[in-house]
């Protein structure tokens, strides 16, 4: 197990390095950030000064080397717009995104899983048809448009819930979150549902496919033939077999939720990293974009590692490579 983790960590560092190289070289091909930083009417001396201040007068290689040495010590440069360390800005905004993604994931699992199991066990019933029909619509509906419609209906027309923002937060057991205040919850409801809807549909479909596949296997038939009752077969033979793939998928999906949060955050003006990076892309705020990318790449590499470890832990058939 340890050998496997070490091997994967080395691999991850290589991937990170390659990513930083690709991102850094490509980002230098587009636009001159100085144009964004200074007033177009400034004097050439002023432009040069800014260029020097941000180290943009040096060659790309030198810039990359400086960036790399900085990155190793946790310094990914200062935002052009905010004038503050990019990593600190991301760290500041990340809890809001994490909160949103976590709520969406919990929603997706708690709604999607039971519905999926239900639909899988009664494939020909009307209930299952409605669930499956709903899930097709759920994966088809564009998240951002749904967000807009939710705002129009629940905030503008009905006036039940606030339009945008995060609302009050409160510190509880060291976690600063809006789920501990009524106002915060009111702000959270729409974005969380909005973000979760696609995943709910996905979980339903995955679960149903898993249930149908497992129920057709011989060991279920054998369990019935030795007189086990249906609830017992579902509990001890069906569920363990469908949970394994679903748990691993969910860990990965958590990552995609964080990525997809950029859309929801933009619609609901949720102050998370997603909104930060969209603004940075529009404003050519290079350090933020690079920092965000490396942050996300790291996050995904860690998530993938966790998935493999979970997989080995819950599936007795899997032995990790490098594991003796």
């Amino acid at each position: 197990m340890l050998a496997f983790v070490i091997k994967r960590c080395i691999q991850s560092v290589v991937v990170l390095f390659v990513m930083s190289l690709i991102v850094f070289s490509m980002i230098n091909l587009v636009g001159d950030p100085v144009d964004m930083l200074v007033n177009p009417e400034s004097l050439p001396e002023e432009i040069d000064r800014v260029r020097r201040d941000f180290g943009l007068d040096q060659s790309v290689q030198v810039q990359y080397w400086k960036f790399l040495t900085g990155a190793v010590s946790g310094d990914l440069g200062n935002s052009f717009i905010f004038g503050r360390p990019a990593l600190a800005l991301i760290a500041e905004r990340f809890p809001a995104t994490l909160e949103l993604a976590t709520c969406a994931l919990i929603l997706a699992v708690s709604v999607g899983l039971p519905l999926g199991i239900y639909a899988g066990l009664n494939p020909d019933g009307w209930g299952a048809r409605i669930v499956m029909g709903g899930s097709v619509l759920g994966i088809s509906i564009p998240t951002f448009w749904l967000g807009l419609m939710m705002i129009i209906i629940f905030s503008v027309l009905l006036g039940w819930l606030p339009v945008s923002g995060r609302g009050e937060t409160e510190n509880f057991l060291g976690i600063e979150s809006s789920i501990f205040t009524v106002d915060g919850l009111r702000h959270l409801v729409l974005p969380a549902i909005n973000l979760a809807l696609f995943k709910i549909s996905m979980v339903i479909r995955l679960t149903r496919a898993g249930v149908e596949e497992v129920m057709a296997l011989d060991f279920i038939k054998f369990a019935r033939a030795r007189g086990l009752s249906s609830p017992r077969i579902i509990r001890s033979h069906l569920l363990p077999n469908i949970f394994i793939p679903i748990v691993t998928v969910l860990a990965i999906e958590f990552g995609t939720l964080i990525a997809f949060a950029t859309v929801t955050e933009s619609v609901f003006a949720w102050p998370g990293v997603g909104k930060l990076v969209i603004d940075a892309i529009v404003n050519l705020d290079r350090p933020i974009v690079v920092a965000y990318l490396l942050f996300v790449v790291t996050l995904f590499l860690v998530l993938n590692l966790i998935v493999d470890i979970i997989y080995a832990a819950i599936d007795p058939r899997v032995r990790l490579q490098g594991d003796r």
């Binding site: 991102v23 490509m26 980002i27 091909l29 587009v30 990552g255 995609t256 990525a259 997809f260 950029t262 859309v263 990076v277 969209i278 892309i281 974009v289 990318l293 996300v296 790449v297 995904f300």
Partner: peptide
């Protein structure tokens, strides 16, 4: 990496 993220980054570039 999720599709939307890769696409976002590519278009940013």
């Amino acid at each position: 990496f999720p599709a939307i993220l890769v696409a976002l980054v590519l278009l940013a570039l």
